[in-house]
Amino acid sequence: MGRLPLLLVILVLAAVLMPSAILMAVLMVPSLVVYVIDRNPHRYFTVTIGLPNFCGVLPPLMDLWERGQTFDGAFNAIADPWNMMIAYGAAGLGWVLYLGTPIFVSSYLNISTDGKIKSIRRYQDDLIDAWGNGVKQSTNIAPVEEMEAHEQDVS
């Protein structure tokens, strides 16, 4: 589905479910902010913040739907600081996760690098055993795309 049809569907839904839309628009501000600043095409940052933020919005949203989808119910939920704290707090947890992961990932990659190098060298030794030292004299340089693909595999 293209962006325009998706936007139209959202607008139609927002028009039909206006109280819910108002509630979500206010409580999911952190996700909207992250969506705007996230430059990664895969939108990992947005996913990291957006999913817990949505989990935080879900209880007042359910409450609103149980009370009949009114503007009063929506404004009351917005005005409730508890709801605000849960929704923004969940988004904050996502933010903390996003900022803290590199510390662990970096440590893990540091440890695994040596193992990977050893594994590659073992494979190369096997090739030399099977085909002789001549196999070292590479005549075919791997294309750049192929190299990148291999790098991706290693990571």
Binding site: I120, W131, V135
Partner: peptide
Amino acid sequence: AQVIFSNLEAQ
């Protein structure tokens, strides 16, 4: 084998 060796070396 030469191509594989060469790629492994690059990695």
